[in-house]
Simulated assay, not measured.
Amino acid sequence: MLFKCPALAFFSQLEARLKLHDLPQWQLFRDYQACSPTATDDEVREFLSTKAIPQCGLCPSRRTKFVHPNPLQRSALQ
């Protein structure tokens, strides 16, 4: 299967592990259709030519960098 991003590719595993089956917030991910290995050349071209899909709206546009405190510094432990 060919997916637009890793989040979509691994969603089924994440859904099973975290038991997200009944949560409606994840329906947009469930609705995603990856490109099948049996797709024709034209279908693959069409899949690759599509830039943004509805699921892209779920990705954060601005990432917040998370900095871990240095455990070797005493001030970080307080």
Rank of each mutant, 00 (worst) to 15 (best):
M1P: 00
M1Q: 01
M1L: 06
F3V: 01
K4T: 03
K4E: 01
A7E: 11
A7T: 11
F10T: 12
F11L: 01
F11K: 01
Q13E: 03
A16N: 10
A16I: 02
A16H: 12
L18I: 07
P24G: 10
Q27Y: 02
Q27V: 12
Q27I: 09
L28S: 07
L28W: 04
L28V: 08
F29G: 01
F29T: 01
F29Q: 02
R30F: 05
Y32L: 06
Y32D: 03
Q33K: 14
Q33R: 13
Q33V: 15
A34S: 14
A34Q: 13
C35M: 07
S36A: 09
P37T: 11
A39R: 01
D41K: 03
E43G: 09
V44E: 02
V44T: 07
R45V: 06
E46Y: 06
E46M: 06
F47S: 08
S49H: 15
T50L: 08
T50D: 03
K51G: 06
Q55R: 04
Q55I: 05
Q55T: 11
C56A: 10
C56Q: 06
C56S: 07
G57H: 02
L58C: 14
C59Y: 00
P60F: 05
S61T: 02
S61E: 01
F66N: 12
H68M: 14
N70T: 10
P71R: 07
P71I: 03
Q73M: 14
Q73T: 12
R74W: 04
S75V: 13
A76G: 10
A76S: 14
L77S: 05
L77W: 02
L77I: 07
Q78R: 10
